[in-house]
Each structure stands twice: as structure tokens, then as C-alpha cells.
């Protein structure tokens, strides 16, 4: 009985946590909306050079200052959401969908199929993600479809591992044995008995995986190996404005803060929806 109880939450932390619970999903939704409509709601043309100095500070006119060409940063960040959020979302969906499918199949079919897929993907995990990204980009270049595939491939093994372990745990439960003993098909068992019991962990994993993908994509772009000019995601925005760092230009920090706001918001949203324990043990 004690394992289901948690200590009392009172005081300012609780108020903070409660507000956080509302604000964080709002931030996530905001960036999602920007990914779709950002280009049209941007106050200025993201690519247009404005009547301004380079690396201007924050002002009434340019809320987040200007970049190394004198373009409006706010517009560039809002428009860049399309790449950062869009590419990450596609890559994550691809990785999670294939991870769930393979994990389900491995747990329901078992035997040689399970062993072969598990061995292969587990070996892939031993390539650090950034390294894997660099090798893939070195080989295939950095067009957007390649980036999506690259990110999906990098995170597929981790995704498979976690979904397989969730699926195997569900498959070991007696109600699955009952369905087997009844003579139900493997497909029925996968889709009707196991999958519905994986939804929670799958969604939590999707969120965490999305964070990793955003961070990796931003890192690649920051290194100049991700989204290529003239297109610019948030990582590219940091990169192209690095010369402004010695002047403390907001153009360097703001895109990085945009990334942080997205990842932190997703992170805390997962925490409040699924509880803190979901994260532990996720690689």
C-alpha cells in the first residue's frame, strides 16, 4: 500500500508545479502551431533584410533584435520552427512507429525473429548518436529527407529496445496466454491484446525521443551539417549568428532559448502527464 503513496506537496513548489502544468503544454502547442503557420504570422519577411543595423539589440521594432544581415530575428525564429519542429516530428514519428511495430512483432513472434532483430539493433545502439549522425551526413549529405531518415535511423534502436521491453512485459501477462490458448492469431494478439496496454509508455517515449531528436538536429545544424542555407532551423540560426557572440547579440542566444523552451516544455509536459518515473531507464 505504501508504494502507491507519495509525500505531501505544499507551498510555493506546488503552486509552481501547478502553473507549470498549464504553461508547459501551452508552449508545446504554441511551437507546434508555429511549425505549421509560423511563416505566415511572422511580423516581417524572415528572409528580407530590414532597415536596421547588424546584430541589433532588442527593441520595440525588432523584439528579438536583428541578425548578421540585419534581418528580424523574431520572424526568423518563428519561421525556423517549421524545420526544427517539423523535421523532428517526422523523424520521431518514423522512429517510434517502426520501433513500436518491430517491438510488438518481436514480442508476439519471439524466437529467431526476436533474437535477430534485437541483436542487430542493440549493436547499432553502440554507435553514439552524434557520431552516427556525422557518419551518415558525411556519406549522404544533408538534404531534408536525408536528415529525417538519418535521425529516424539513429533513434530507431533505442525506440525498439524500450518498446520491445514494454511489449514483452505485456505479452508475459496471463490475458495474453488466455488469448493464445483460445487460438487467436498473432495479429489479433499484437493489436488487440498487447498494443492497447502500451499506449502510455509509447507516448511518453515519443516525447522523450522527440527531445533527443530536436537536440541532435540542432547540434548538426549548429555544426553546419544539418539544415542547409538558405533554409534555416534554430540550430542554423545560432551558427550563422555566432560572430555576434562577442557583442552579446540576442541573435545568438534567442534561437538557442527557443530550442530550450521547446525541449523543457515537452519534458515537463511528459512529467505531469505520465509521472516522473517514466523517464528513468529510458536511453
Amino acid at each position: 500500500m505504501s508504494s502507491t503513496t507519495i509525500p505531501a506537496r505544499r507551498g510555493p513548489m506546488a503552486i509552481l508545479a501547478r502553473t507549470g502544468r498549464m504553461i508547459m503544454p501551452a508552449i508545446v502547442l504554441f511551437w507546434l502551431a508555429m511549425a505549421f503557420f509560423g511563416y505566415w504570422v511572422a511580423p516581417y519577411d524572415p528572409a528580407g533584410i530590414q532597415d536596421a543595423d547588424l546584430f541589433e539589440g532588442m527593441s520595440r521594432k525588432f523584439w528579438l533584435g536583428t541578425d548578421y544581415f540585419g534581418r528580424d530575428m523574431l520572424s526568423r525564429i518563428v519561421a525556423g520552427a517549421r524545420y526544427t519542429v517539423g523535421i523532428s516530428l517526422m523523424a520521431t514519428s518514423l522512429a517510434v512507429a517502426s520501433g513500436v511495430l518491430l517491438g510488438l512483432a518481436a514480442s508476439a513472434i519471439g524466437g529467431f525473429f526476436d533474437a535477430a532483430v534485437s541483436r542487430f539493433l542493440d549493436a547499432l545502439i553502440s554507435i553514439p548518436s552524434k557520431m552516427f549522425g556525422l557518419v551518415l551526413v558525411a556519406a549522404f549529405g544533408a538534404s531534408i529527407p536525408v536528415l529525417v531518415m538519418t535521425l529516424a535511423v539513429i533513434y530507431l534502436p533505442g525506440c525498439y529496445r524500450i518498446n520491445r521491453s514494454v511489449a514483452v512485459n505485456v505479452a508475459a501477462l496471463d490475458f495474453v496466454a488466455v488469448a493464445r490458448a483460445r487460438g487467436e492469431s498473432t495479429l489479433y494478439i499484437m493489436l488487440r491484446e498487447i498494443l492497447p496496454n502500451m499506449i502510455g509508455p509509447v507516448l511518453a517515449d515519443f516525447g522523450l525521443r522527440f527531445i533527443y531528436v530536436v537536440l541532435l538536429l540542432s547540434s548538426l545544424s549548429f555544426l553546419g551539417l544539418g539544415v542547409q542555407p538558405p533554409q534555416a532551423d534554430w540550430g542554423s540560426l545560432v551558427r550563422e549568428n555566432m560572430p555576434g557572440l562577442p557583442y552579446g547579440a540576442p541573435a545568438v542566444i534567442m534561437p538557442a532559448i527557443a530550442i530550450a523552451s521547446l525541449t523543457i516544455a515537452v519534458n515537463l509536459t511528459i512529467d505531469s502527464v505520465f509521472g516522473r518515473h517514466t523517464r528513468e531507464g529510458v536511453r
Binding site: I211, L215, S218, S219, F222, G235, V238, M242, L245, P246, Y247, G248, V252, I253, A256, I257, I259, A260, T263, I264, V266, N267, L268, D271
Partner: peptide
Amino acid sequence: VLAVSVPEFLVASAAVLVFAVQLRWVPA
């Protein structure tokens, strides 16, 4: 949670901004 959610280059640029640009303790 905050630290693992933040890209390394944000940490690095913030560090440069504070310690090299503002405080001038170390070279950038």
C-alpha cells in the same frame, strides 16, 4: 531536467557571454 533539455551550444554560448564577454575572466 533543465540541463538535459538544453543544447550544449546554448550552455557554451551562455558561458562565453558571461565569463568571456561580460566578466572578461577567460578568453572566448
